[in-house]
């Protein structure tokens, strides 16, 4: 059994990321992120075939990746984010619903279609780009503050009652 993760990104500017950045601007934080990127993450647990199986699933279902609008890559060692990123210090947080129909339904569908996949689950990666010379620990703290909505005026990316968050590594 293998666990693999892919990250999928729109080739055009992502309106969700634009709105997120706007919403954060309105919060008037002392240290806001300067850029935001959004990725769909898909976690595969495959019975056999590893990379080949995942590539095969991606090829078969344009709902997961439509190459006419999205690009995708394997997370982990092979992940490579765009070059412009080097101007900023990036921190990523992953938001995942505790339960969701999207993951359940895809898992069922792949099993039904007899792909050697145990499960597929969906989450969202938000990458925030901070000024390059900011203290790393501070960046992490700021990112975590934004990651979890505790009240109307603090946090944004997840509702702690229905979602979990973790740092992207």
């Amino acid at each position: 059994m293998d666990s693999l993760q892919i990250a999928v990104k729109l080739n055009t500017p992502d309106p969700q990321a634009i709105t997120a950045l706007n919403a954060i601007k309105a919060m008037r934080l002392q240290l806001p992120p300067l850029k935001i990127q959004r990725y769909d993450l898909w976690d595969f647990e495959v019975i056999e075939g590893g990379i080949d199986t995942v590539s095969n699933v991606v090829k078969h279902f344009s709902d997961i990746v439509n190459p006419n609008k999205q690009s995708w890559m394997f997370a982990g060692e092979e992940i490579s984010f765009p070059e412009e990123d080097t101007e900023l210090q990036w921190v990523g947080i992953v938001v995942k619903d505790f339960v969701d129909s999207i993951s359940d339904n895809w898992t069922e569908l792949l099993k039904r279609r007899e792909f050697p996949v145990l499960s597929l689950s969906h989450s969202v990666l938000w990458r925030m780009g901070y000024l390059i010379d900011t203290d790393e620990a501070l960046v992490k703290k700021m990112a975590l503050d934004l990651a979890v909505s505790k009240s109307r005026s603090s946090g944004l990316f997840s509702n702690p009652i229905s979602q979990e968050v973790f740092f992207w590594s």
């Binding site: 080739n11 055009t12 500017p13 309106p15 006419n68 609008k69």
Partner: peptide
């Protein structure tokens, strides 16, 4: 095949 230029991005909001 088509260039990315042809993709229209809808924004209902």
């Amino acid at each position: 095949e088509l260039g990315m230029g042809s993709v229209q991005v809808a924004d209902p909001f």
